[in-house]
Computed example of a mutant assay.
Amino acid sequence: MESLYKNIHQDVIDRCKAEERDAQFQLYKLYYKSMYNTSLRIVGNEAEAEDIMQEAFLNAFRKIKTYSGQVSFGAWLKRIVVNRSLDHLKKRKVQLEELDERITGEMVENPLMEIKEVDVQKIKQAIFQLPDGYRVVLSLYLLEGYDHDEISEILNISSSSSRSQLLRAKRKLRDYIKKDEVFSIN
């Protein structure tokens, strides 16, 4: 199958497919920070995110010959990191609650965030205080850019449950930071 996506680091990817260690290290250096941050947003623990990211890279290098170029390499690798992170949460027995299929009028989705005063540390702390299920959906939707259908497929929940989890996560996040009036989520 011919590649649909031309990667700017295709030469490094090809060398990784040839199992060149220096190319693997080069690819790792190119992607480790963003993949670590992706995992951290999902699992909420720095040491666990580091371990997950390392395992994801090892897995990616073992399976790199299956990378066909249908999506960017970064998107392919991110999917591995997201899946590893979610598997880790499942091991911690995180239960994503399946919610009523009905979406009430008050649950109209508006993902826009109006930022009044940015204190990144307070926002990060508030996100990490969210229950795992809420944090995962919020991270996948707002930070990783997945839509509700993709989230429902990844987490094996309904699309409406994904929407409900996001709404509840936004409300809980707003409650955590409301006293400081850092920002409001509509």
Rank of each mutant, 00 (worst) to 15 (best):
K65G: 10
I177P: 00
R79W: 09
P111S: 09
K170P: 04
Y146E: 01
E50Q: 06
E19I: 12
A126K: 00
V118E: 07
Q95I: 15
L77N: 03
V43N: 00
R174I: 10
S158D: 12
Q70K: 14
R62A: 13
E50H: 06
Y5R: 05
L4Y: 08
Y36N: 03
R135A: 00
S139T: 05
A23V: 04
E50A: 06
L58Q: 09
K6Y: 14
V182D: 00
I52P: 02
N186Q: 13
N45H: 01
I13H: 02
D51A: 04
R62P: 07
D132Q: 07
R41G: 15
L138Y: 11
S162K: 05
N186E: 14
R174W: 09
F61H: 01
A23H: 02
R168S: 13
E153A: 07
I177W: 00
N45L: 01
S164N: 09
N156R: 14
K91T: 15
D51H: 02
N83W: 06
Y32R: 09
E50P: 01
S161D: 10
E48N: 08
P111V: 11
D51N: 05
I127S: 06
G74E: 14
E98Q: 15
I42E: 01
Q95H: 14
N59V: 15
S164R: 14
R135G: 04
Q121L: 04
Y5N: 08
E117A: 04
D100P: 10
E97Y: 13
E2Q: 14
F73P: 05
Q165D: 11
L86K: 10
A126L: 00
L130C: 06
R79N: 15
E106P: 04
D22N: 12
L140T: 00
I13V: 03
A56L: 03
K124P: 03
K6M: 10
G145C: 01
L112F: 15
V137M: 02
D100R: 08
K29C: 07
Q24T: 02
R174E: 14
S139G: 08
Y146G: 00
Y176P: 01
V137Y: 06
F73R: 02
E48V: 10
E97N: 12
E150G: 01
R92T: 15
E144H: 00
D175A: 07
K17I: 05
K90L: 12
G69A: 03
D149M: 08
A23F: 03
V81I: 12
K17P: 07
E181G: 09
F73G: 04
N83S: 13
E101T: 10
N45T: 02
I42D: 01
E114K: 14
E55D: 14
K33C: 07
K78T: 13
E114R: 13
I42A: 01
L89R: 03
A126V: 02
Q24E: 11
K122P: 01
A169D: 01
L77K: 05
I13G: 03
F25N: 14
G69H: 00
I115Y: 05
V43Y: 01
R102D: 15
A169E: 02
Q125T: 06
H9C: 12
D22Y: 09
F183L: 14
S184E: 15
